[in-house]
Amino acid sequence: MYRVKKAVIPAAGLGTRFLPATKAMPKEMLPIVDKPTIQYIIEEAIESGIEDIIIITGKGKRAIEDHFDSVPELEANLIAKNKSDLLHLVEETTNINIHFIRQSKPKGLGDAILQAKAFIGNEPFVVMLGDDIVQAEIPCTRQLIEQYERTNCSIIGVQQVRNQDTQRYGIVDPSNSISEDLHKVKSFVEKPALGTAPSNLAILGRYLLKPDIFTYLETQIVGSGGEVQLTDAISRLNEFDEVLAYEFRGRRYDVGEKLGFIQTTLEFALKRDDLGDDVARMMKELLAERASRTSSV
């Protein structure tokens, strides 16, 4: 059994939910406090033992490549000014084995993953979506790798969501449970209509897949939203090679929509030693001002 050492990070989306900010800036570069969202994903991959990362980009995404490249002028300036702490932060993003490939047209997540076929070869790999940041004692991706090492099956990361939110996600229809948090899957449903979801177990941005998935992606017809859906290809794979759903442990943050992004930024700021107290005080003042305005109306 191959060891899991490669990760695919799709970053070719247009980011329309965050317009106009994403007209010229990749949504993956929007910062949570002072760190781009995609950097949290990269850090999780490294902490999980991943050695090689490929990022699938698109038009207008050059800033992602620049972020993970060396900037000699900046580094020299920080050295000259003896700003070692800032230098360390800059160097953290350059000493990583990252590759880039472009998805020429936005044909969907399934098509984006297909672009990595040559890079992956005949090895299992993880897919990590940038809209989901997971804070966990054991990194989420590491949890999936551990389940794969036990079962030799493709593993899909899931968590329970509210029934009214199921139409936003790929949903798992579980059959038998192997353990409390590991389930066999009857089928996968991409964004079911409200009230029709077979469960509230949602696929949340982490997948560990065998390379066989590429056989199905190459022949996958267009699905929901007029795009090639990874969920549809996984469903076909499951018919011939069992795919399991694992309820991973940890706090998942949805940074793919505005309210979730704001909540994540506030929570991460409150946890910081250098910002937490000031941010808490600021929030109390703003809430008091808002209450005062509301009561005077």
Rank of each mutant, 00 (worst) to 15 (best):
V161F: 12
F188I: 07
F248Q: 06
Q167I: 09
E180G: 13
K83Q: 14
L237S: 05
R150M: 12
Q147K: 12
L109G: 05
G260P: 08
F261L: 09
M29H: 06
I54Q: 07
T265H: 07
R206S: 02
S175N: 08
E247V: 14
D278V: 06
S84M: 08
I156W: 08
R290K: 14
M25D: 09
S104T: 08
I213H: 09
V90F: 11
Q147M: 13
S224F: 15
Y246L: 01
E289D: 14
Y40D: 04
Q229N: 14
L209I: 05
F68P: 01
G13Q: 04
L14D: 09
A193T: 13
N122T: 00
L287I: 12
D232A: 04
L275D: 05
E146L: 12
F240M: 05
Y216R: 03
P211W: 05
G225C: 02
A202L: 07
S224H: 15
A11V: 09
K271Y: 03
E43R: 05
S187N: 06
V33E: 06
V126I: 12
P26N: 03
F100P: 08
H99E: 12
I32P: 02
P20Y: 05
S179E: 09
I221F: 11
K59S: 10
I155F: 10
E65A: 07
I56S: 08
D111R: 07
T294Y: 12
E242L: 00
S175V: 01
G195S: 05
F18M: 01
H183Q: 07
T16V: 11
K23C: 01
V255L: 02
D173N: 10
L230Q: 06
L266W: 00
T231E: 11
N122W: 00
E51G: 01
M25T: 15
K186N: 11
T196E: 13
R162E: 15
I96P: 05
E180T: 09
A116H: 04
E123W: 00
R251D: 15
L201Q: 06
L287N: 14
K210A: 00
S154M: 02
D254F: 09
L144M: 07
I56N: 08
Q229I: 11
V185H: 03
K59D: 10
N200C: 13
Y253K: 06
R142V: 03
D132W: 15
E137W: 03
R162H: 13
V185C: 02
E123F: 02
I203K: 04
L209T: 02
L204H: 06
I138L: 10
H99Q: 14
P124A: 07
Y2R: 00
D278L: 11
I213S: 08
D69L: 10
G195Y: 03
S70L: 13
D232E: 06
D34R: 07
V161Q: 12
C140R: 10
E91N: 13
T265Y: 10
E149I: 00
N200R: 13
E239W: 04
N95G: 07
A12P: 04
E73N: 10
V297A: 11
G276I: 04
N238P: 01
I38L: 13
K117W: 01
R102K: 15
L78Y: 12
Y40F: 15
L89E: 15
E247M: 14
V279W: 03
A118N: 15
H183R: 02
V279S: 02
L194V: 11
H183A: 01
L275Q: 04
P31R: 12
D241G: 03
